[in-house]
């Protein structure tokens, strides 16, 4: 029995290591489409990240954290940008999970992205952790 357990443990380690070494599939047409939509939108969102109007949420989404940084007449447009960006982000996480044959990974992928967006945010951008906003 002990020998078997050892084999099982070893196998588990090897298996998880093998998973970890692999790459996730992110080159499907759907992912590319979502990505290029987000890329085009980034030019419009970037100044709002810089002004602090929009911040990177802890949930992998973006949030309108201080609309008053934007002139009144443009606030609706920013709300629209945020809504579209979040719809695309949700679709992106879902598609990556689906493209890799594990739809149940969606929440994990969302969490991973949430950390990476925040980690890689430019200095001066607002990021959220534990419900609190802070400036990078």
């Amino acid at each position: 029995m002990n020998a078997l357990k050892r084999i099982a443990l070893l196998a588990a380690l090897v298996a998880s290591a093998a998973w970890a070494q692999g790459n996730l599939e992110i080159n499907t047409p759907a992912i590319s489409q979502i990505k290029s939509g987000m890329q085009a939108r980034h030019a419009q969102l970037a100044p709002h990240y810089a002004s602090g109007a929009v911040g990177l949420g802890a949930d992998g989404a973006v949030a309108l954290r201080d609309a008053s940084a934007v002139p009144l007449a443009q606030r609706q447009a920013v709300q629209g940008l945020v809504a579209q960006e979040n719809a695309d982000r949700a679709a992106l996480y879902r598609e990556i999970a689906r493209a890799n044959g594990h739809p149940e990974w969606e929440a994990d992928i969302r969490n991973t992205f949430a950390q990476r967006w925040i980690e890689r945010a430019q200095p001066g951008w607002y990021v959220q952790s534990g419900g609190q906003w802070s400036r990078k």
Partner: peptide, 11 residues
Amino acid sequence: FSSADGLRGAE
């Protein structure tokens, strides 16, 4: 006037 989140306001 302006709400804290800036989503309600007038100028």
